[in-house]
Simulated scan of single mutants.
Amino acid sequence: MSAQPDPRYDIDGDVYVSPRYLAGSTGTGDPALAPLLGLGWDLQHDDLGNVYVNAPDRRVRLGYLPEGEDDGLWRINGYLDPFGPPAWGVCFNDSTPTEFVRAFTTALASAYEQGPDVYLARPVSGIDEHDPFLAVVPLLKQGWEFDRPRWGLFAVQSPDGLAAMEFTTGDLDPAAELTTRDARWQLWAGNSVERPAWYATASTDTPVALLTAVTRCVADPAPLPRWRGETFSYIEGMARLTPILPAEPPAPTPLDVQRAVASRRPAALPASSVPRWSTTSRPALPGPRR
């Protein structure tokens, strides 16, 4: 049986950032693209370095746009009709922790394998698995609290007040939901919603299971590893940075100790190498008298 790799050696960073919603992006899109590419989705790119990923039925499309027109680095849309307008759309800006995007794409890959009834499922209030407010439950379980009520807006806030999730009520412009921050859902972190450290938006008909995958990841109390030189300056005063120490060697077992002692003992000479004149040889018998 082969030995399992120690996960401590796979840590990519020199500090842990806590709470994790203050970690910022890792600066690479590969981890978030992997769940979809693992299903064989088509990948293309343009001359600027933007990446486009399409589902086989062309009903889900992802754009990773480092050279896009705004800070919307990740734009992911689902389509009832491959040639029609998007049925739902999600955007993560360029500072969003990559782990949150990967949580979304992982859930999307799972939903896609189950079929369009899952990855195109519209939220419906009062229906258990499709109730939109289920997406808030993971945050509430980790101590997030309802923010003071505002007209047309429902919100929950992290205990430190540095992150929030907002739900806008009433009618919204479907086109604006897909291209601006005027969407049904908005998740953000930082000092203010006007100038957040990062944000993510989701349109009205985004499947609840996909939203919940993100909020569950955001609510996870485990810190995220980052390279300190690449963290945002504001993190220094808001987040807790804990050095990632090198892994300590495992304590020796009693068998390891016995083997070490045995290796220091001098090796015994083989019987064939003992000379006949040594003290281990029997003395010669006296001959007969003459």
Rank of each mutant, 00 (worst) to 15 (best):
A189S: 15
A164T: 12
A189E: 02
R184W: 01
A176G: 01
E166K: 12
G170N: 09
T168A: 13
R181I: 03
P196M: 06
T168N: 09
W198Q: 08
L178K: 00
A175M: 13
E194R: 10
G170P: 05
R181W: 07
G170S: 09
N191P: 06
E194G: 07
T179M: 06
W188H: 11
R184V: 03
E177T: 08
Y199V: 02
W185H: 08
L187S: 01
W198Y: 11
P196W: 03
P174D: 01
T179I: 12
A200N: 04
D182R: 14
G190T: 04
A189F: 02
L178N: 02
A197H: 10
R181E: 08
A164R: 13
N191K: 15
R181L: 04
P174T: 07
A183T: 00
T169C: 10
L187Q: 02
Q186M: 14
D171T: 14
A164I: 01
W185P: 00
D173V: 11
D182C: 06
D173G: 10
L187A: 07
T169N: 13
P174M: 06
A183R: 00
A183F: 00
M165E: 03
A197V: 06
R184A: 11
W188E: 07
W188M: 04
D182F: 09
D182K: 14
G190E: 02
A176Q: 11
A183N: 00
P174L: 03
A200P: 00
F167A: 12
L187W: 01
V193S: 12
L187N: 04
D182W: 03
D173A: 13
R195G: 10
L187D: 00
L172G: 12
G190D: 07
N191W: 13
L172Y: 04
E177L: 05
M165C: 15
N191F: 14
P174A: 09
E166V: 11
A164C: 12
A189I: 07
S192I: 11
A189C: 06
E166D: 10
T180D: 04
T168C: 05
A183Q: 01
S192A: 15
R184M: 04
D171P: 02
Q186C: 14
M165V: 15
Y199Q: 09
L178P: 00
T168F: 04
T179P: 00
